[in-house]
Design a protein around this nucleic acid. Structure first.
Length: 501
RNA sequence: GCGGGCGUAGCUCAAUUGGUAGAGUACCACCUUGCCAAGGUGGAUGUUGACGGUUCGAGCCCGUUCGCCCGCUCCA
């Protein structure tokens, strides 16, 4: 049984590979770190997740419209959004302790005594770093037995250090200078060139989030759709981040897919209540596709760690096999993005509110979720092993809405032409509406088990009663193993209710 | 990017001091099979992750590289 977390994750990765859900990308060339391909069953599951989301977020609501923007936007988009400046992490390594620091969180100062620089001190960013640095400066002065007045300790972060200063700055880990590397920049946006010339003027970026495509189309959607605030724009699409260290299978990859909504509200609106409303709505949605509430939790980002644009962010966390991690972020973004794009483009995004006769730039609530993370969460929640008549059984308890195959049709045995013909007939009929599977080879029990492992919720078996007596078939439930007999009409009604209801 | 571990058939793993790869399972075909991985017969499958070196000879030793896992770091 998969009782320890490592083997549960291994089992899921293994099943994904073996049954064609997820492959390492470019596997014949040795794989490519941070990229994954979705196989025949994976693409079905992934599409079903996206379709369920689209249906519940867009089609079943009156106040949300869809959008599909390009992956490459005008490069100025990223200047306005702040990503060009803020989506870069300058990092510094200590070669001795092997510790890694963010250069903008590691501060240093020269220690000046009587006008002469006698050495350097370094501290990690926190509330008391100035005091700590001054204490270190005093200690250094005493240690070197220098006479004279200690100059003011002026802290700067490592990104401002001159090249010749780096070897003199002590590592916070060892307290000794000489082991820090110069800050190296890890820009997380993938770059490319648009057009024939590869120079600075043609530099462009693959989007690191789908959100900006929504913001830059705000006015287009507003002008054509007769929408009134509050309303939202939803988008599903690929996003790219050059992660330093992709980890945990498809959880953090370099090419991934997002489902994002920007829900525009009045600046006067009670954003906290709306924010909470979205949290509840999204939690309920997860529950409806088979991600149980007991595996979900909330995490409020501490105020001081919020991104430049955010008034408040709450993550919906999921208990993955490798730990509790973010599944969805729900941010109150204020009107930072619309304001920025308005100012930068010179086309202000003022909205005239007929109800209050006021003009304003709307604020947003942004529920943003990764398709691949939902995919992994769904698999984690669905994966189970049990025992049937003494034999171990692997079963994916996927919600019928998400299951790659909705049902599998079997003739009880395959050497009776009448059984085979009738089963094929039912299969073809069902296939017009749903993705169903047909299998005639091997013992019936084995065929059930094969479908259990890929999450097919129903097995439909054509037996001798079907062709000789009343025309009913048996319908076998994946989770309970129970069988009922249904006429063909009742079968269709049953599937309709379970899959679409 | 650093440290540690690992890489052999689709999967799980063997292969003696270095002597040019094998099992189980899965898969395909046929036979058998009246409801939960039954049985029989036959079949296909590998540049041992890649490249280079040492050697008469490398899955095994050495180097490089790619990938995976764990820890650190990162994750607006």
């Amino acid at each position: 049984m998969a009782n320890d977390t490592a083997s549960l994750m291994d089992n899921i990765i293994n099943l994904c590979k073996r049954r064609g859900f997820v492959f390492p990308s470019s596997e014949i060339y040795g794989g490519y770190n941070g990229f994954f391909d979705y196989g025949p069953l994976g693409v079905e599951l992934k599409n079903n997740i996206k379709q369920a989301w689209w249906k519940d977020m867009v089609h079943r609501r009156d106040d949300i419209a869809g959008l599909d923007s390009t992956i490459i936007h005008h490069p100025t988009t990223w200047k306005a959004s702040g990503h060009l400046e803020n989506f870069t992490d300058p990092l510094v390594d200590c070669k001795e302790s092997k510790m890694r620091y963010r250069a903008d969180q590691l501060f240093f100062a020269p220690v000046v005594v009587a006008g002469e620089t006698i050495g350097y001190v370094s501290v990690l960013e926190d509330d008391t770093m100035q005091e700590k640095a001054e204490q270190q400066a005093h200690d250094l002065k005493r240690k070197l037995a220098k006479q004279g007045e200690l100059g003011p300790v002026v802290l700067k972060d490592l990104t401002e250090a001159a090249a010749e200063e780096i070897p003199l700055i002590p590592s916070p880990a060892t307290g000794k200078p000489g082991s820090l590397t110069p800050p190296r920049s890890f820009n997380m946006m993938f770059q490319t060139y648009v057009g024939a010339l590869q120079d600075a003027s043609s530099l462009a970026y693959l989007r690191p989030e789908t959100a900006q495509g929504i913001f830059i189309n705000f006015k287009n959607v507003l002008d054509t759709g007769r929408f009134k605030v509050p309303f939202g724009i939803a988008q599903i699409g690929k996003a790219f981040r050059n992660e330093i260290n992709p980890r945990n299978f498809i959880f953090r990859s370099r090419e991934f897919e997002q489902m994002e909504i920007e829900f525009f509200i009045s600046p006067e609106a009670d954003w906290k209540t709306l924010h909470t409303g979205w949290l509840d709505y999204c939690m309920a949605w997860f529950d409806s596709i088979g991600i149980p509430r007991e595996k979900l939790s909330l995490y409020d980002h501490p105020k001081e760690k919020l991104s430049h644009y955010s008034k408040g962010t709450t993550d919906i966390m999921f208990e993955f096999p490798f730990g509790v991690q973010e599944l969805q972020g729900i941010a109150a973004r204020g009107n930072f993005d619309l304001t920025q794009h308005g100012n930068t483009s010179g086309k202000p995004f003022d909205y005239f509110d007929e109800a209050t006769k006021t003009k304003y730039i709307p604020h947003v609530i942004e529920p943003s979720v990764g398709v691949d993370r939902v995919f992994l969460a769904v698999l984690t929640a669905a994966y189970s092993e049990d025992e049937v008549e003494g034999e171990k059984r692997t079963v994916l308890r996927l919600h019928p809405r998400l299951a790659p195959f909705k049902a599998a049709v079997f003739p009880l045995v395959k050497n009776k032409p009448e059984l085979l013909a009738r089963a094929e007939e039912i299969y073809k009929k069902l296939k017009r509406r749903w993705n169903v599977f047909f299998d005639a080879s091997g013992a019936i029990g084995r065929r059930y088990r094969r479908q259990d492992e890929i999450g097919t919720p129903y097995g439909i078996t054509v037996d001798f009663d079907t062709i000789e007596k009343d025309g009913t078939v048996t319908l076998r439930d994946r989770d309970t193993l129970e069988q009922i007999r249904l006429s063909e009409d009742d079968l269709i009604k049953f599937l309709e209710e379970k899959i679409e209801g």
